[in-house]
Design a binder for these strands. Structure first.
Ligand SMILES: [Mn+2]
Ligand SMILES: [Mn+2]
Ligand SMILES: [Zn+2]
Ligand SMILES: [Zn+2]
Lengths: 124, 124
DNA sequence: TTTATTATTGCAACAAAATCGCATTAAAAG
DNA sequence: CTTTTAATGCGATTTTGTTGCAATAATAAA
């Protein structure tokens, strides 16, 4: 199933690259340079996640946030870092800080989802 | 607005106490000893959170999980610890491990939401 | 015990986030 | 240019959670 290059893909990725932070669907949609259907934007975002281009974080507001992967492999998402969600501007950024943790005996950790909520530099 | 004791409140709390872990709405509903309306269960859970009886965690599956507070004050929820969500039995537990973190200069941290996903001892 | 007050409930409607079915469109391979 | 099928648009649907409102019932007052 070879991927095709389309205006929708380019437009979505452009928005996320320009933002430099993770955005939720609504924010992506609002910043698109061309008109794309809602469902298509969702599908593009999901495909990018499958392909290791974006990674997805679910925040306390119940929404999915998408960010361009920097240290992620297309085989495996590296997301062992903290995320900071600003309640002011609805963005979410990957912090460099790695998350240190252990699990109880017999437990098996598969992935983590660590978010710090607050105000970013601009919104503080 | 003085709270009243009702069968619905008792039943919901009984389920959560017996579980000893955080459960989402659906799981609470499925384990009730009496028949209670969906909306009522949601309202009971929210009221318990307001009153500092339960605390709420939003997981990667986009659902809210509710757990009986142990170290929480009725004034302020103490939730600076990791949570473990088992993808096998759909439960979520508070781990004793506190979360260590720092935020970039100028950023203001207000709350955290840290979840480790994987398999619990029973489901590993 | 009886009555009054109003928190709580049930039910249906609603809202928001995300997904899905399906016919149509358009990348890109040949 | 033709063919193949990934990607799109559009509407319907699902899932999670909230809300309006009339009816019910817990609790305080009489
Ligand atoms: Mn990240
Ligand atoms: Mn907790
Ligand atoms: Zn901000
Ligand atoms: Zn389990």
């Amino acid at each position: 199933m070879r991927r095709r290059n389309t205006p929708a893909k380019e437009a979505v990725l452009e928005v996320l690259k320009k933002a430099g932070k993770a955005l939720n669907h609504e924010t992506v949609q609002d910043n698109l340079s061309i008109d794309i259907d809602r469902a298509t934007v969702y599908r593009v975002l999901n495909r990018f996640c499958d392909d290791g281009i974006l990674h997805r974080v679910v925040a306390e507001d119940g929404k999915q946030y998408f960010a361009v992967c920097s240290k992620c492999d297309s085989e495996k998402h590296s997301d062992n870092h903290f995320h900071f969600r600003c309640t002011g501007c609805n963005t979410l950024e990957c912090l460099p800080t790695p998350v240190q943790f252990t699990v109880p005996d017999g437990y098996l950790a598969e992935s983590i989802n660590c978010i710090i909520n607050g105000r970013c530099k601009n919104c503080a």
